[in-house]
Design a protein around this nucleic acid. Structure first.
Length: 689
DNA sequence: TAGCCTCGAGTTCA
DNA sequence: CTCGAGGCTA
């Protein structure tokens, strides 16, 4: 009994939340749930109703197709009901679909696989276009599936919707109902938001809402200003085109001048659909429009007719969605972190939530300005987005979900690690204490031992924290005073690892000058500037002794960087640390002063096709690391660089290459795959000798 | 002085 | 990867 009661309560709760979300999404164009969250709730509701059919009510959200139309537009009845698609995320869901299709078509195991037409599922707004005698007569949104909103005037402003069908497709039927998706490209969406931000006007939450909002403007002149596009994906059944397959129907629509997505593929059987799904997911980020899955349709129209439809959805089509990349969670707390150069960063500590395959617990809130702009409070529900770039972002807070207990985060006035008063520096607050602040000292020590500096493997985050907290290390020089006895006192530190650490430290005493300079953590001196200094001056003593003017003479070093270098070496404390390092035996290798001889083939011998070229690597390389690739390129005389610009000669793109690849293509820069690059390296003589 | 190009710094998780 | 900002160049 008690069990039954709680089921009913849960049902009521689910229905209420879903109805609210439907209204917010369809009528207000201001979603309160992400797709992923909505799907979860919807699926739970459906599952409970499937188990307890007696509890299904007529007003349950599962009993209707969409939501009611807002009343500003004239209602428009659809020629044929505009259904939605059954959707699944898991592979099993797709396999079950294939099983049902085969059963419905009375196919046996030894019959050939079903041919499916696969199309990316565009994340936009569904729209029906009615052409009479080849002329656009009406455009309607989906609405509740039976009656939508008449948005003809707005649709007419969208350039990719033909007002009259082209003759190339042959004579159209008297009445043709085309279904498709209105969308906005990512680039247009960003451009539009930038403009709005400049004018201080409201921003669009995402391209889909941008498209929905734009299409439903009461003034068509406004819609005309919005960069909307349209893909056609179907013909309402009943409009007979005299073709036999979905694929042919699309081709016909294309001939009539409607735009058809260029990633439509027909494949044989369920495994091929899965492969197509994976391929599409992989390319997802590089597409210029947002998609949230793959639409899978039985290609044969006869087969479609045979399968028919259930009350709300056709039996011959399925939306195979991707893992959601957005999720909603709550901000449990906001804390601050102290960075290497003392900047204070607020961090949201989240209730763990899974987004695109990983559990996210924290996300940066960048700085005060960002925090205030997004108005994120402790206790808020927030939308977390995690795209192909791995790093999760807080998109926005769901202010509709506030219950009044949320707290505005107050920035500390003093450094959380050393209590000194923070100072303002641009958008950041900064801790003014140099290496006296334990947080900054930890960062400094870690940087000193980091891969690209002196590469001390053993010196990880945990160990550094212990060394600083126990007071064993108060300056960089203290690293070289460590001994096995004091180290083994630390947790998780045995004699063996202690000895290894000391040996590793010993090795860094004679490091290349450029690495050592980088390791010191001088402001503005990263890898590149450190190399410039080393090449121009040759020794630590020389760098120390060079005055401001002479530093600025170095190519690539300007007033700002020169001043930072001088400040560092003139600082008494740094000077004494440097002296202590020397006393401990640290003596960076001197090197020959490299005379600048800019581009020129003073180098003898033909150096192959890469000599003097500017090359950029992007994406995941599988056979070698990016560092190795850059080294190889350098040894062939190429200049590796980090970003694509008009001066770039060559781009090597690995797996999942993103914006750089897109930019390179736009600029018409030659693009190589990893394998092509490696082949080139090999035939040009591999390493240099 | 404006407009590129490039560098430095910050960033999450396993 | 992205942002902000330093340095160089037309």
């Amino acid at each position: 009994m008690a069990k039954k009661k709680s089921t009913e309560a849960r049902l009521a709760e689910l229905r209420e939340r879903i109805s609210e979300a439907d209204h917010a999404y369809h009528v207000l164009d201001a979603p309160v749930l992400t797709d992923g969250e909505y799907d979860t709730l919807y699926r739970e509701l459906k599952a409970i109703e499937a188990k307890h059919p007696e509890l299904v009510t007529a007003d349950s959200p599962t009993q209707r197709v969409g939501a009611t139309a807002a009343d500003q537009f004239e209602p428009a009845e659809h020629v044929k009901p505009m259904g939605s698609l059954e959707s699944v995320v898991e592979e099993d869901g797709l396999r079950e679909f294939d099983g049902r299709v085969r059963k419905g078509l009375e196919l046996d195991d030894d019959d050939p696989p079903v041919r499916y037409c696969c199309e990316p599922k565009i994340d936009g707004v569904a729209l029906e276009l009615v052409y009479r005698e080849g002329v656009l007569e009406m455009a309607a949104t989906r609405g509740d599936g039976l009656v939508g909103e008449n948005v003809t005037a707005n649709a007419r402003t969208i350039p990719s919707i033909p007002l009259r069908l082209l003759p190339a497709g042959g004579p159209p039927p008297e009445l043709l109902s085309v279904r498709g998706e209105v969308y906005m490209t990512k680039a247009d969406f960003h451009r539009h938001n930038e403009l709005q931000a400049e004018r201080g006007e409201a921003l669009m939450a995402n391209p889909r809402n941008g498209a929905a909002g734009s299409l439903r403007q009461l003034d068509p002149a406004v819609t005309e200003q919005r960069p909307l596009k349209f893909f056609a994906y179907a013909v309402a059944d009943g409009s007979d085109l005299g073709v036999g397959t979905q694929r042919e129907a699309l081709a016909r629509l294309g001939d009539w001048g409607l735009s058809i997505n260029d990633r439509v593929r027909t494949v044989e059987g369920v495994d091929a659909v899965l492969a197509e799904h994976a391929r599409t997911d992989k390319d997802r980020d590089s597409l210029d429009y947002e998609i949230d899955g793959l639409v899978v349709k039985v290609d044969e129209l006869d087969a479609q007719r045979k399968l028919g439809a259930r009350s709300r959805t056709p039996r011959w089509a399925l939306a195979h969605k991707f893992e959601p990349t957005e999720a909603v969670t709550r901000v449990a707390n906001i804390s601050v972190q102290v960075g290497r150069v003392g900047s204070i960063t607020p961090v949201a500590e989240l209730e763990p939530v899974e987004v695109a395959g990983v559990v996210v617990r924290r996300a940066t809130l960048h700085n005060r300005k960002e925090l205030e702009r997004k108005d994120i409070r402790i206790g808020d529900h927030v939308v977390i987005h995690r795209a192909g770039d791995v790093i999760p972002h807080v998109v926005r807070s769901l202010q509709e979900r506030r219950d009044g207990d949320e707290e505005v985060f107050l920035f500390p006035e003093i450094c959380p690690a050393c209590d000194s008063k923070l100072v303002e520096d641009g958008v950041f607050l900064r801790c003014p204490q140099g290496s006296h602040c334990p947080a900054r000292l930890k960062e400094a020590v870690q940087h000193y031992g980091s891969k690209r500096a002196l590469d001390i493997d053993q010196l990880g985050e945990k160990l550094v924290a212990q060394l600083v907290d126990t007071g064993l290390v108060k300056t960089l020089a203290d690293l070289y005073r460590l001994d096995v006895e004091s180290l083994v006192e630390l947790e998780r530190m045995g004699e063996k690892s202690a000895t290894k650490l000391i040996a590793a430290l010993d090795e860094t005493k004679r490091a290349p000058l450029a690495r050592f300079l980088h390791a010191l953590g001088i402001k503005h001196v990263g890898e590149h500037v450190a190399r410039l200094l080393a090449d121009a001056l040759g020794s630590l003593e020389a760098v120390q002794a060079t005055d401001l003017d002479a530093l600025q003479e170095i190519d690539g070093i300007g007033p700002e960087v020169a001043a930072a270098v001088r400040d560092f070496f003139e600082d008494e404390e740094q000077a004494s640390i440097l002296q202590e390092l020397r006393d401990a035996g640290v003596e960076p290798l001197t090197q020959e002063v490299v005379v600048v001889d800019d581009d020129d083939d003073a180098d003898d011998g033909e150096r192959g096709p890469l000599h003097g070229k500017r090359i950029v690597f992007t994406g995941k390389l599988s056979r070698i690391t990016r560092d190795e690739a850059q080294e190889a390129a350098r040894s062939l005389g190429a200049k590796p660089s980090g970003s694509v610009s008009s001066k770039t000669d060559l781009l090597v793109a690995g797996e999942a290459a993103g914006s750089k690849l897109a930019k390179a293509e736009k600029l018409g820069i030659e693009v190589l795959t990893e394998d092509e690059f490696l082949a080139l390296v090999e035939e040009s003589g591999g390493g240099s000798d």
